[in-house]
Protein backbone atom coordinates (compact mmCIF):
# COMPACT_ATOMS: atom_id res chain seq x y z
CA UNK A 1 0.00 0.00 0.00
CA UNK A 2 2.77 2.34 0.96
CA UNK A 3 4.54 1.59 -2.27
CA UNK A 4 1.43 2.59 -4.24
CA UNK A 5 1.32 5.94 -2.49
CA UNK A 6 5.03 6.37 -3.05
CA UNK A 7 4.57 5.59 -6.71
CA UNK A 8 1.66 8.00 -7.04
CA UNK A 9 3.64 10.71 -5.28
CA UNK A 10 6.75 10.29 -7.39
CA UNK A 11 4.86 10.37 -10.64
CA UNK A 12 2.23 12.87 -9.54
CA UNK A 13 3.18 15.39 -12.22
CA UNK A 14 2.96 12.86 -15.01
CA UNK A 15 -0.31 11.38 -13.73
CA UNK A 16 -1.86 14.83 -13.37
CA UNK A 17 -0.60 15.73 -16.85
CA UNK A 18 -2.26 12.68 -18.38
CA UNK A 19 -5.51 13.29 -16.49
CA UNK A 20 -5.67 16.93 -17.53
CA UNK A 21 -4.97 16.06 -21.17
CA UNK A 22 -7.76 13.49 -21.07
CA UNK A 23 -10.06 16.15 -19.64
CA UNK A 24 -9.10 18.56 -22.43
CA UNK A 25 -9.59 15.84 -25.03
CA UNK A 26 -13.05 15.18 -23.66
CA UNK A 27 -13.87 18.91 -23.88
CA UNK A 28 -12.62 19.08 -27.46
CA UNK A 29 -14.59 16.06 -28.63
CA UNK A 30 -17.69 17.18 -26.78
CA UNK A 31 -17.66 20.72 -28.14
CA UNK A 32 -16.39 20.31 -31.66
CA UNK A 33 -19.17 17.99 -32.70
CA UNK A 34 -20.96 20.59 -34.69
CA UNK A 35 -24.47 19.44 -34.02
CA UNK A 36 -23.74 18.90 -30.36
CA UNK A 37 -25.04 21.23 -27.72
CA UNK A 38 -22.30 23.40 -26.34
CA UNK A 39 -22.10 23.98 -22.64
CA UNK A 40 -19.01 26.10 -22.63
CA UNK A 41 -18.50 28.73 -25.28
CA UNK A 42 -18.43 32.41 -26.07
CA UNK A 43 -22.16 32.91 -25.54
CA UNK A 44 -21.41 32.65 -21.83
CA UNK A 45 -22.35 35.95 -20.28
CA UNK A 46 -19.03 37.32 -19.07
CA UNK A 47 -17.08 36.24 -22.11
CA UNK A 48 -19.67 37.72 -24.43
CA UNK A 49 -19.73 40.99 -22.51
CA UNK A 50 -15.98 41.46 -22.98
CA UNK A 51 -16.25 40.53 -26.64
CA UNK A 52 -19.06 43.03 -27.11
CA UNK A 53 -17.08 45.86 -25.54
CA UNK A 54 -14.03 45.25 -27.73
CA UNK A 55 -16.20 44.94 -30.83
CA UNK A 56 -17.81 48.30 -30.11
CA UNK A 57 -14.41 49.98 -30.50
CA UNK A 58 -13.71 48.10 -33.71
CA UNK A 59 -17.11 49.05 -35.14
CA UNK A 60 -16.16 52.70 -35.57
CA UNK A 61 -13.60 51.75 -38.16
CA UNK A 62 -16.10 49.75 -40.18
CA UNK A 63 -18.99 52.23 -40.25
CA UNK A 64 -18.37 53.24 -43.84
CA UNK A 65 -18.59 49.69 -45.12
CA UNK A 66 -21.67 48.93 -43.03
CA UNK A 67 -23.42 51.99 -44.45
CA UNK A 68 -22.58 51.01 -47.99
CA UNK A 69 -23.84 47.47 -47.47
CA UNK A 70 -27.08 48.60 -45.88
CA UNK A 71 -27.71 51.05 -48.72
CA UNK A 72 -27.06 48.31 -51.26
CA UNK A 73 -29.44 46.00 -49.47
CA UNK A 74 -32.10 48.69 -49.33
CA UNK A 75 -31.81 49.14 -53.05
CA UNK A 76 -32.09 45.42 -53.65
CA UNK A 77 -35.15 45.08 -51.42
CA UNK A 78 -36.76 48.06 -53.11
CA UNK A 79 -36.28 46.45 -56.48
CA UNK A 80 -37.72 43.18 -55.24
CA UNK A 81 -40.71 44.96 -53.85
CA UNK A 82 -41.42 46.56 -57.19
CA UNK A 83 -41.16 43.24 -58.97
CA UNK A 84 -43.48 41.57 -56.48
CA UNK A 85 -46.00 44.34 -56.72
CA UNK A 86 -46.01 43.98 -60.52
CA UNK A 87 -46.22 40.22 -60.56
CA UNK A 88 -49.11 40.28 -58.12
CA UNK A 89 -51.17 42.31 -60.53
CA UNK A 90 -50.31 39.99 -63.38
CA UNK A 91 -51.00 36.85 -61.38
CA UNK A 92 -54.36 37.77 -60.00
CA UNK A 93 -56.82 34.94 -60.18
CA UNK A 94 -54.33 32.13 -60.71
CA UNK A 95 -52.39 30.16 -58.04
CA UNK A 96 -52.95 31.39 -54.52
CA UNK A 97 -50.25 30.41 -52.02
CA UNK A 98 -51.36 29.62 -48.51
CA UNK A 99 -51.40 32.94 -46.71
CA UNK A 100 -49.64 31.39 -43.71
CA UNK A 101 -46.88 30.01 -45.94
CA UNK A 102 -46.02 33.34 -47.50
CA UNK A 103 -44.93 34.68 -44.14
CA UNK A 104 -43.37 31.59 -42.67
CA UNK A 105 -39.91 33.12 -42.34
CA UNK A 106 -39.35 35.72 -39.67
CA UNK A 107 -36.09 37.68 -39.58
CA UNK A 108 -34.25 38.93 -36.50
CA UNK A 109 -31.39 41.36 -37.12
CA UNK A 110 -28.35 40.82 -34.91
CA UNK A 111 -24.92 42.33 -34.56
CA UNK A 112 -21.75 40.27 -34.86
CA UNK A 113 -19.53 40.66 -31.80
CA UNK A 114 -16.90 38.06 -32.67
CA UNK A 115 -16.09 36.15 -35.80
CA UNK A 116 -13.23 34.03 -36.99
CA UNK A 117 -12.27 32.91 -40.48
CA UNK A 118 -8.86 31.39 -39.98
CA UNK A 119 -9.53 28.16 -38.10
CA UNK A 120 -10.84 24.99 -39.79
CA UNK A 121 -13.93 25.28 -37.56
CA UNK A 122 -15.08 28.85 -37.54
CA UNK A 123 -17.80 30.21 -35.32
CA UNK A 124 -19.41 33.61 -34.93
CA UNK A 125 -20.93 35.16 -31.82
CA UNK A 126 -23.90 37.55 -32.11
CA UNK A 127 -25.66 39.76 -29.58
CA UNK A 128 -29.16 38.24 -29.65
CA UNK A 129 -30.26 35.17 -27.74
CA UNK A 130 -33.25 33.22 -26.49
CA UNK A 131 -34.96 36.37 -25.23
CA UNK A 132 -35.28 37.49 -28.86
CA UNK A 133 -36.70 34.14 -29.87
CA UNK A 134 -33.48 32.67 -31.21
CA UNK A 135 -33.05 28.92 -30.87
CA UNK A 136 -30.41 26.44 -32.01
CA UNK A 137 -30.69 25.21 -35.63
CA UNK A 138 -31.98 28.48 -37.06
CA UNK A 139 -30.33 29.70 -40.25
CA UNK A 140 -28.34 32.91 -40.44
CA UNK A 141 -27.83 35.08 -43.52
CA UNK A 142 -26.14 38.39 -44.18
CA UNK A 143 -27.06 41.05 -46.75
CA UNK A 144 -24.50 39.38 -49.02
CA UNK A 145 -25.43 35.73 -48.64
CA UNK A 146 -25.51 32.66 -46.44
CA UNK A 147 -23.64 32.79 -43.12
CA UNK A 148 -24.41 29.63 -41.13
CA UNK A 149 -26.57 28.03 -38.48
CA UNK A 150 -27.15 28.76 -34.79
CA UNK A 151 -25.62 26.08 -32.57
CA UNK A 152 -25.81 27.51 -29.06
CA UNK A 153 -27.75 30.23 -27.28
CA UNK A 154 -27.72 32.00 -23.97
CA UNK A 155 -30.27 34.63 -22.97
CA UNK A 156 -28.58 37.52 -24.75
CA UNK A 157 -26.02 35.90 -27.04
CA UNK A 158 -25.78 33.10 -29.59
CA UNK A 159 -23.02 31.19 -31.34
CA UNK A 160 -23.25 30.48 -35.05
CA UNK A 161 -21.44 27.66 -36.82
CA UNK A 162 -20.43 29.44 -40.00
CA UNK A 163 -20.40 27.67 -43.36
CA UNK A 164 -16.63 28.01 -43.00
CA UNK A 165 -16.61 24.88 -40.85
CA UNK A 166 -15.20 21.64 -42.24
CA UNK A 167 -18.16 19.60 -40.96
CA UNK A 168 -20.86 21.89 -42.37
CA UNK A 169 -22.85 20.57 -45.32
CA UNK A 170 -25.03 23.13 -47.05
CA UNK A 171 -27.68 21.84 -49.42
CA UNK A 172 -27.62 24.15 -52.44
CA UNK A 173 -28.60 24.28 -56.06
CA UNK A 174 -27.44 25.89 -59.26
CA UNK A 175 -29.88 28.67 -59.91
CA UNK A 176 -30.24 28.39 -63.68
CA UNK A 177 -31.15 24.69 -63.90
CA UNK A 178 -32.03 23.75 -60.35
CA UNK A 179 -29.61 20.84 -59.99
CA UNK A 180 -28.89 20.13 -56.35
CA UNK A 181 -25.51 19.67 -54.68
CA UNK A 182 -23.75 20.14 -51.38
CA UNK A 183 -21.44 23.02 -50.55
CA UNK A 184 -18.56 22.02 -48.25
CA UNK A 185 -15.56 23.97 -47.04
CA UNK A 186 -12.08 22.46 -47.14
CA UNK A 187 -10.71 24.48 -44.22
CA UNK A 188 -8.25 26.63 -46.13
CA UNK A 189 -9.36 29.77 -47.97
CA UNK A 190 -12.20 31.75 -46.39
CA UNK A 191 -13.53 32.94 -49.76
CA UNK A 192 -13.71 29.63 -51.56
CA UNK A 193 -15.80 26.50 -51.04
CA UNK A 194 -16.37 23.33 -53.02
CA UNK A 195 -19.70 22.12 -54.39
CA UNK A 196 -20.13 18.38 -54.72
CA UNK A 197 -22.63 15.83 -56.03
CA UNK A 198 -23.73 17.85 -59.06
CA UNK A 199 -24.08 15.16 -61.75
CA UNK A 200 -21.99 15.38 -64.93
CA UNK A 201 -24.93 15.40 -67.33
CA UNK A 202 -26.05 18.80 -66.06
CA UNK A 203 -24.64 21.76 -67.94
CA UNK A 204 -22.56 23.95 -65.65
CA UNK A 205 -20.37 26.92 -66.49
CA UNK A 206 -18.06 29.18 -64.57
CA UNK A 207 -20.08 32.23 -63.54
CA UNK A 208 -23.26 30.34 -62.68
CA UNK A 209 -24.97 31.37 -59.46
CA UNK A 210 -25.32 28.96 -56.54
CA UNK A 211 -28.23 29.44 -54.10
CA UNK A 212 -29.65 27.46 -51.18
CA UNK A 213 -31.94 24.64 -52.18
CA UNK A 214 -35.42 23.94 -50.93
CA UNK A 215 -34.22 20.65 -49.44
CA UNK A 216 -33.65 22.04 -45.99
CA UNK A 217 -35.86 23.63 -43.39
CA UNK A 218 -33.13 26.02 -42.17
CA UNK A 219 -32.85 28.46 -45.07
CA UNK A 220 -35.48 29.79 -47.43
CA UNK A 221 -34.92 28.66 -50.99
CA UNK A 222 -32.82 30.94 -53.16
CA UNK A 223 -30.51 32.66 -50.70
CA UNK A 224 -27.25 33.49 -52.48
CA UNK A 225 -24.35 31.16 -51.63
CA UNK A 226 -21.81 32.20 -54.28
CA UNK A 227 -20.70 32.06 -57.85
CA UNK A 228 -19.02 29.11 -59.56
CA UNK A 229 -15.46 29.98 -60.41
CA UNK A 230 -14.02 26.78 -61.78
CA UNK A 231 -15.60 23.66 -63.25
CA UNK A 232 -13.58 20.48 -63.28
CA UNK A 233 -14.21 16.77 -63.07
CA UNK A 234 -12.05 13.72 -62.64
CA UNK A 235 -12.57 11.31 -65.59
CA UNK A 236 -13.77 8.47 -63.36
CA UNK A 237 -16.18 10.55 -61.33
CA UNK A 238 -19.87 10.90 -61.99
CA UNK A 239 -20.08 14.28 -60.29
CA UNK A 240 -18.42 17.62 -60.96
CA UNK A 241 -15.79 19.17 -58.78
CA UNK A 242 -16.98 22.77 -58.60
CA UNK A 243 -15.13 25.67 -56.98
CA UNK A 244 -17.48 28.27 -55.54
CA UNK A 245 -16.54 31.85 -54.76
CA UNK A 246 -18.56 32.57 -51.62
CA UNK A 247 -20.79 35.65 -51.67
CA UNK A 248 -20.41 36.49 -47.99
CA UNK A 249 -17.26 38.30 -46.94
CA UNK A 250 -16.73 36.71 -43.52
CA UNK A 251 -13.84 39.02 -42.73
CA UNK A 252 -16.09 42.07 -42.66
CA UNK A 253 -19.29 40.64 -41.25
CA UNK A 254 -21.14 43.26 -39.18
CA UNK A 255 -24.90 42.65 -39.20
CA UNK A 256 -26.67 39.37 -39.84
CA UNK A 257 -30.27 38.16 -39.99
CA UNK A 258 -31.38 35.10 -38.07
CA UNK A 259 -34.15 33.26 -39.89
CA UNK A 260 -36.96 31.82 -37.86
CA UNK A 261 -38.93 29.30 -39.91
CA UNK A 262 -42.13 29.10 -37.92
CA UNK A 263 -43.20 25.86 -39.58
CA UNK A 264 -39.82 24.17 -39.22
CA UNK A 265 -40.93 21.68 -36.61
CA UNK A 266 -44.13 20.91 -38.44
CA UNK A 267 -42.20 20.30 -41.66
CA UNK A 268 -39.62 18.09 -39.97
CA UNK A 269 -42.16 15.97 -38.15
CA UNK A 270 -44.02 15.45 -41.39
CA UNK A 271 -40.87 14.58 -43.29
CA UNK A 272 -39.87 12.05 -40.68
CA UNK A 273 -43.24 10.33 -40.95
CA UNK A 274 -43.08 9.92 -44.71
CA UNK A 275 -40.50 7.75 -46.35
CA UNK A 276 -39.13 9.77 -49.28
CA UNK A 277 -40.31 8.14 -52.50
CA UNK A 278 -38.14 9.66 -55.20
CA UNK A 279 -36.08 12.76 -55.62
CA UNK A 280 -37.48 15.24 -58.09
CA UNK A 281 -34.29 16.29 -59.85
CA UNK A 282 -34.61 16.23 -63.62
Amino acid sequence: MQRIFWFLFTYRAFILFVLLEIFCGWLIVKNNAYQGAYFYNSSTRYTADVLKKTQEVKDYFGLKDVNRELAAENARLHQMYEQLALSKIAQQGSYKPDSALTQRFKFVAAKVIRSSTVSPRNTITIDKGTLDGIKPDMGVISPQGVVGKITACSEHFSVITSILHIDYRLSSQIKKNGSVGTVEWDGKNSQISAMRYVPRYVEVQAGDTVVTSSYNSVFPQGVLVGVIRKVSAAPSETAYDLTVQLATDFNRLSYVYVINNIYKEEQEILEKKNVPVESNTP
Binding site: E21, N32, Y40, L51, R121, T125
Partner: peptide
Protein backbone atom coordinates in the same frame (compact mmCIF):
# COMPACT_ATOMS: atom_id res chain seq x y z
CA UNK B 1 -10.58 28.91 -25.06
CA UNK B 2 -13.79 30.54 -23.95
CA UNK B 3 -12.90 33.60 -26.01
CA UNK B 4 -11.80 31.74 -29.11
CA UNK B 5 -14.71 29.26 -28.93
CA UNK B 6 -12.28 26.37 -29.16
CA UNK B 7 -13.15 24.55 -25.91
CA UNK B 8 -10.20 22.48 -24.78
CA UNK B 9 -7.72 23.10 -27.59
CA UNK B 10 -5.77 25.93 -25.97
CA UNK B 11 -6.07 24.16 -22.61
CA UNK B 12 -4.55 20.96 -24.02
CA UNK B 13 -1.66 22.87 -25.62
CA UNK B 14 -1.03 24.87 -22.44
CA UNK B 15 -1.01 21.78 -20.23
Amino acid sequence: DSFYDTAGIHAAACV
